[in-house]
């Protein structure tokens, strides 16, 4: 019975779509986390919801509606919010309007019937188990565009993310990059929301990258770890849902729970490691002073130990 389930097309399609969505989300998520744009990511996902329902109403492909509305919103957020504080409010306004629009389209699309609730739910929570081959094709195309875009701006984007002032001084177009990244994020959100649902896309955009940023320091290591965690979370979630004895929990639940668990374990581990490192440095120092090692030697050691000490809470991400 279980083996049959694992051999089915449903399982295979869910795994393929989930893997692609998770890979893209965890790579884009790296910048989302570094730039503290989780709210922007969430809002662009909500905008895709509005776009998809609107497209369904007008008989266009949902992914087209989601992408167009998402790109428009990303452009608006990028053009309006200059500072993080302002952006917070702009994003809030965009979310509120987008969700209102989504509800409006939904109410026109399926007026008063039970379909109304079901259609809304399936877009919000996604339906990884009903992924069709053509969905996978669309998802891969959009993902390729997203990854190409990200690769194209990778170096300057990283620079302007970790040190915006220095980047601006060197002539890197920080503002333009910020808008470009939001556009990339909007495409990733549209692809993710339609393939795996808003809930899963949000979990995959935030949790793997946030965990990786806490545990590693070099950008390349963080990206690889984020990718592994993202793919691992979705595989684990799908497997749990399929193999659970008795009534299968929905994939949305197992993936988001797994993501939250991974993140909080990561937080605990990074705090523990930080505390331990602090302790050894202090012990090492006192041992040094006790032994009266040569001054040159001790400063050298002190320097290297200071170099190893990360900043409070979050490790620094400098290239």
């Amino acid at each position: 019975m279980t083996i049959q389930l694992l051999a089915s097309d449903i399982f295979r399609n869910a795994m393929i779509a989930g893997t692609i969505a998770a890979a893209v989300a965890s790579l884009v998520g790296y910048f989302v986390v570094l730039r503290a744009q989780a709210f922007a990511a969430e809002s662009l996902l909500d905008v895709s919801f509005a776009g998809a329902t609107g497209a369904a109403l007008f008989g266009v492909a949902p992914v087209l509606g989601a992408a167009i509305l998402g790109l428009g919103a990303a452009f608006g957020i990028g053009a309006m919010g200059e500072r993080a504080r302002e952006r917070d409010v702009e994003i809030g306004m965009v979310v509120s309007f987008a969700l209102g629009l989504g509800i409006f389209f939904l109410s026109l699309y399926a007026r008063g019937s039970a379909l109304h609730a079901t259609a809304g739910m399936s877009i919000l929570f996604g339906s990884l188990l009903s992924v069709q081959p053509q969905d996978i094709l669309r998802l891969s195309l959009l993902s390729a565009v997203v990854l190409a875009g990200l690769a194209g701006v990778f170096r300057p984007l990283l620079f302007s993310t970790t040190d915006p002032e220095a980047a601006r001084a060197r002539g890197v177009p920080v503002r333009l990059l910020s808008t470009l990244f939001l556009l990339i994020l909007a495409l990733a959100a549209a692809a993710g929301a339609l393939a795996v649902g808003i809930l899963l896309a949000a979990a995959l955009l935030i949790a793997p990258a946030a965990t990786a940023v806490r545990l590693t320091r070099r950008p390349s290591a963080t990206l690889v770890l984020s990718l592994c965690l993202g793919v691992g979370i979705i595989w684990g979630g799908i497997l749990i849902s399929f193999l659970w004895p008795g009534r299968h929990p929905p994939v949305g639940f197992s993936v988001s729970t797994l993501a939250a668990a991974v993140y909080f374990i990561g937080v605990a581990a990074s705090r523990r490691a930080y505390a331990r490192r602090e302790k050894t440095i202090i012990i090492g120092d006192s041992a040094e002073t006790a032994q009266w090692t040569s001054r040159k030697e001790s400063t050298k050691r002190l320097r290297s130990s200071v170099k190893e000490k990360p900043g409070p809470g979050v490790p620094s991400h400098r290239t």
Binding site: A210, S256, A260
Partner: peptide
Amino acid sequence: GVIMTFALGL
């Protein structure tokens, strides 16, 4: 973000 997605999943 993490707390929200977890709660929505629940």
